[in-house]
Every structure is written in structure tokens, then in C-alpha cells.
């Protein structure tokens, strides 16, 4: 069964990987913290696998989940 995605961002072709010269696509990624994992869909380079974490996500949901896990 496919894993549930906790968060999805589609770059819609607006982000480009400068090393590979290709647009980032909506790809599968996983956040890991204190032995917990969260499958997500983020802008990923289809060639080198570079995963982009936008500022709003890092300071919003990611930060909130970090706090929650730290206090577990």
C-alpha cells in the first residue's frame, strides 16, 4: 500500500536544479527526526535527488513537529 503523504508541494516547473539543468518535480521525500519519519512530497531534482525545503515549510510545520517530537 502506498504511504500516506503528510505534506505535498508541487513546484509547477518554477524551480530549476542548477547543477543538473532540469526543473524540480513533485517527488517523494522523507523527513527524519529523533527516530521518527514522515513521508512527504516536495520539489525534488529528478536527476541528482536534491530535495528543497521551502522557508514557509521549515519555519511552519517542520518547526512545529520538531518541537512536538523534542518534548516526547
Amino acid at each position: 500500500m502506498a504511504e500516506k503523504n503528510y505534506y505535498t508541494i508541487d513546484p509547477e516547473g518554477k524551480l530549476t536544479c542548477m547543477r543538473c539543468g532540469v526543473p524540480l518535480i513533485k517527488g517523494k521525500a522523507r523527513f527524519l527526526y529523533l527516530d521518527n519519519g514522515f513521508p512527504v512530497e516536495l520539489p525534488v531534482c529528478p536527476v541528482c535527488g536534491f530535495v528543497y525545503v521551502p522557508e514557509e515549510l521549515a519555519l511552519g510545520k517542520v518547526a512545529a513537529v520538531e518541537r512536538a517530537l523534542e518534548d516526547k
Binding site: 521525500a29 516536495l42 520538531e66
Partner: peptide, 15 residues
């Protein structure tokens, strides 16, 4: 122009 950080690691996942 801007800078931010997070503590989680992020990896590409297969499938």
C-alpha cells in the same frame, strides 16, 4: 537575501 534552518533531515525516498 534570506536564510532559514531546520533540524529535521530530509532524504529522497524511493517508490
Amino acid at each position: 537575501h534570506r536564510a532559514w534552518s531546520h533540524r529535521m533531515t530530509v532524504v529522497k525516498r524511493e517508490g
